[in-house]
């Protein structure tokens, strides 16, 4: 079966959705991603949806699920690159994706993940300047 590739980069998992997703493909991504988080101990997941031309309630639910499941598995998920027309449509549809972290683009998304993941421990002076 067709699968969406999941790339690993250090503590992060990266996913770029480049195809018009049918429901089973979205479900497979949810299963694959949670399995990969558990297996690799990844702390952050970045999902780029800039190629997605629509997000309907099904895809919206999968995005919420991935976000919630990753949190339980001690990882943060950030969705990046949503097209403005998709955002307008989502809100009108009634989906505001509560609890889902978003960023405008990949760069901002990675910056957000780094802040969430690399929280300095107390007494650790190295990174404290940032906070």
């Amino acid at each position: 079966m067709e699968r969406i590739p999941i790339l690993r980069m250090g503590d992060y998992l990266l996913v770029t959705i480049q195809v018009d997703m049918h429901d089973r493909l979205a479900m497979a991504l949810q299963d694959d991603l949670t399995a990969r988080i558990a297996k690799t101990g990844a702390q952050g997941v970045l999902i780029d949806i800039s190629s997605l031309e629509i997000v309907d309630s099904f895809i919206g639910r999968i995005i919420s699920n991935i976000s919630g499941m990753s949190r339980i598995l001690d990882a943060h998920t950030v969705i990046v690159g949503m097209q403005p027309a998709v955002a307008i449509t989502l809100v009108e549809l009634g989906l505001t994706l509560p609890g889902v972290l978003t960023a405008l683009d990949v760069e901002k998304g990675m910056a957000l993940l780094r802040r969430l993941v690399d929280v300095p421990e107390e007494g650790d002076d190295e990174d404290n300047a940032e906070f």
């Binding site: 309907d56 099904f58 307008i88 549809l93």
Partner: peptide
Amino acid sequence: SLVDVTKLVTACSELAR
């Protein structure tokens, strides 16, 4: 418009499902 097309395609997706 792109926004209206996106809305109609999204509605289509919901109803087709």
